[in-house]
Design a protein around this nucleic acid. Structure first.
Lengths: 226, 226
DNA sequence: TTGTTTTGTCACAATTTGAACATAATTATA
DNA sequence: TATAATTATGTTCAAATTGTGACAAAACAA
């Protein structure tokens, strides 16, 4: 599975390195920019930046300006770093669409926690169509699935079905619902077909096959745990 | 569009009033709770709370506990208020699924800005079909039931029956009514069948089985408490 | 075309459930 | 208290539902 890309923008290389090191440890791909112009360039060159960490105080183009330029075209999550917690700044930031606001000095742990929180929240809207639940990772764009890091081969229908399950994790799904969503509306075949596909999915998923629960008299349910 | 409901939980009434006033000015509907237990009660009674603002320091049940209990069943956005910016607290909060973290003293403007930011992000909050009464929680979407937090396995009919009871809590239900609602109306079997299902339900519910009262010569009644 | 993979159908086995019934326990009432 | 009415409980068995393997049909690739 590809790592999520985070763009770190700060004029101080020491700060960039600090942030980068922590993010890399946490399995992110980190790109650096040392000023606003470069940040904007990189962001639009790469089109799969998952999140931007942006210092407010920078020469040439400051953080607000960068934010404005990017917000004009993208809803990518932005975290602002500022020297001191100044309320006015913070308000301005929210108006510009800043997602989070962290004042220096901050602990890297806090930073990583917030990054994760934001990425979790914007999961559905993130550029990459990534789904994760209970060790199952689905990349809708790549049409690939891994179970506990191990890639598994799924047919088209199996992939669709699993995706539907994971997108509706924790929800009991009747066979009728499944047919209407995963199969076309004009499909009037046997609902038991689902059973067969569930069987195959379960076997291909190994241990994790048990995450697809049978709801007797009703249908199926994907659960994240147990 | 109705106003969005925000639940404010704080033991200090002055603080509640302060927050409430600002939110009301910004066109929110505000509910108040003065302790954790009350907060949880209100949250599960109302099933359309859009966001919760939660003080960490409270007598009886503290903010973390409230957060945990609510997170077990809902992804409603939660903002935590804390007296001082303590890093450990903050980390714990993110792990628990706290969406935002504001340290006192804060300006009401900041609070409102963050509330708006979160609500914008979590636009599509899916209201799960949650029912609660006397420690019994029913998630109709997930087709699952917990008793005092412990999940229990129910068969299809048992689930239907319990749901019917809880939806009609406090109301005496004749066997005839129960048959007509939980069974199909074309069912003309033995009404004693209900007894068998009630028996099973009671035993699976443990102590809480006593919440299903027998109304002699008439039928059954589910009561929230003794 | 042929051969391979995917998808859908079917039959039968395995499992779960629901209803019925007999009997014990409880409650109401004479 | 004795008796009848009603409910609780344990057990059994048939029916409904799901799991599984085999195989046909369809889609796809070489």
């Amino acid at each position: 599975m590809d790592k999520l890309k985070i763009l770190v923008v700060d004029d101080e290389s020491r700060m960039r390195k600090l942030v980068k090191d922590f993010l890399v440890k946490n399995n992110y791909d980190v790109l650096e920019a040392e000023d606003g112009a470069q940040a904007v360039d990189i962001f639009f060159e790469q089109n799969d930046i998952a999140l931007i960490i942006l210092d407010v105080m920078m020469p040439k183009m400051d953080g607000w300006q960068v934010c404005r330029e990017i917000r004009a075209y993208s809803k990518v999550p932005i975290i602002m770093l500022t020297a001191k917690a100044d309320e006015k700044d913070e308000l301005q930031g929210f108006e510009l669409g800043v997602d989070e606001y962290i004042s220096k000095p901050f602990s890297p742990k806090i930073l990583v926690a917030r990054v994760e929180a934001i990425l979790r929240r914007t999961n559905q809207v993130s550029a990459d169509d990534l789904l994760e639940a209970g060790g199952i990772r689905i990349d809708k764009a790549a049409h690939s699935v891994t179970v506990d890091g191990q890639p598994i081969d799924l047919s088209y229908k199996e992939f669709e079905l699993l995706t539907y399950f994971v997108e509706n994790k924790g929800i009991a799904l009747s066979r009728e619902k499944i047919l209407n969503s995963v199969w076309n509306y004009d499909y009037f075949g046997d609902a038991r077909t689902i059973d067969t596909h569930v069987k195959k999915l379960r076997s291909k998923m190994g241990d994790k096959g048990e995450l697809i629960k049978t709801i007797w008299g009703m249908g199926y349910k994907f659960t994240e745990a147990e």
